[in-house]
């Protein structure tokens, strides 16, 4: 490397260093100001006692973590199921020709329907309504119906993401596949869907951050997961600090997933610029 580029790098670093200092200072001032306003507000002592009680926090944390296991299960099972079901919906919706109109229409209605409904209503209807029918051989398990509800809801979102991916694959790819004698289904399976899925992994992960958080909705039908645990403890001691423990657990789990998504997006962009696809 020449001296010119080395000195340019050095210059870049010192400019970068100053930028970091400025960013640090402005952050300290900004959050310092907010903190000062909060701490000097008239109601602060009461809020501090009911939200930031160290003893209550350490009391709630182990139980909350233990109960978070249920949220993880809800999340993982619903995620895998909605990945599969969402893809099926997206493929059904992209079937061409007049013969498949009823199937396409059904897929459209499904997606519109479940995207329109607030998640909590779907959970209520399934977890209370279906056991209420007292059908033979149908489980009353709220956890089970919670998973079903989350899967139905998120399949609708996920199928839209897949569909965008499928539509983003250039028609010339299908033309090339069909010209080789592949059927429409083979073209989808081997050529279009693999490219589509690769492109939509970042937005899919985005949806799953949402799903992760929405697992707390299942607490409202009586599944004692992390949020329910916090609310039980909170009512027992008339103190909101257990919710803080729950919030912290979600933050610790979700932020790495969000950063991972950003990293994937950045990597995809780099690969595209470099012309690589793998």
């Amino acid at each position: 490397m020449t001296g010119g580029s080395a000195s340019r790098r050095r210059l870049g670093r010192s400019v970068g260093g100053r930028a970091v200092l400025i960013a640090l200072a402005s952050t300290v001032v900004f959050f310092g100001a907010i903190g000062w306003v909060v701490v000097h507000s008239p109601g602060w002592p009461v809020v501090q006692r009911s939200f930031f009680d160290a003893e209550r926090f350490w009391d709630a944390l182990p139980d909350s973590i233990a109960r978070f296991r249920l949220n993880v299960q809800l999340f993982l099972i619903a995620e895998v199921l909605s990945l599969v079901f969402g893809l099926v919906l997206a493929v059904l919706r992209s079937l061409p020709g007049p013969v498949f109109f009823p199937i396409r229409a059904l897929a459209v209605v499904y997606v519109d329907f479940f995207r329109a409904l607030p998640g909590i209503l779907v959970i209520f209807i399934l977890a209370f309504g279906i056991p209420g029918l007292r059908l033979q051989g149908v489980t009353n398990d709220r956890f089970f119906w919670g998973i079903v509800a989350l899967t139905l809801l998120y399949s609708a979102y996920v199928s839209e993401v897949y569909r965008a991916g499928i539509e983003s694959v250039h028609p010339s790819q299908e033309a090339a596949a069909r010209s080789l004698g592949l059927s429409r289904v083979q073209a989808l399976r081997f050529v279009i869907v693999p490219q589509a899925v690769r492109r939509v992994i970042p937005p899919l992960l985005n949806d799953f951050i949402g799903l992760q958080k929405d697992t707390v909705l299942v607490s409202f039908v009586g599944v004692v997961e992390v949020f329910r645990t916090a609310s039980i403890k909170s009512s027992a001691y008339f103190n909101f600090t257990p919710y803080l423990a729950t919030a912290l657990i979600f933050i610790v789990v979700t932020i790495p997933l969000a950063r991972f998504t950003d990293w994937l997006v950045a990597r995809d962009r780099r690969n595209q610029l470099r012309g690589g696809v793998r």
Partner: peptide
């Protein structure tokens, strides 16, 4: 085709063998 239309997610070998294997 004018624009090649190779399958970008497959190696050269897989591009060529896809149709002989599947069709």
């Amino acid at each position: 085709f004018q624009a090649f239309n190779l399958f970008p997610h497959m190696s050269v070998l897989d591009n060529i063998t896809l149709a002989p294997i599947r069709v």
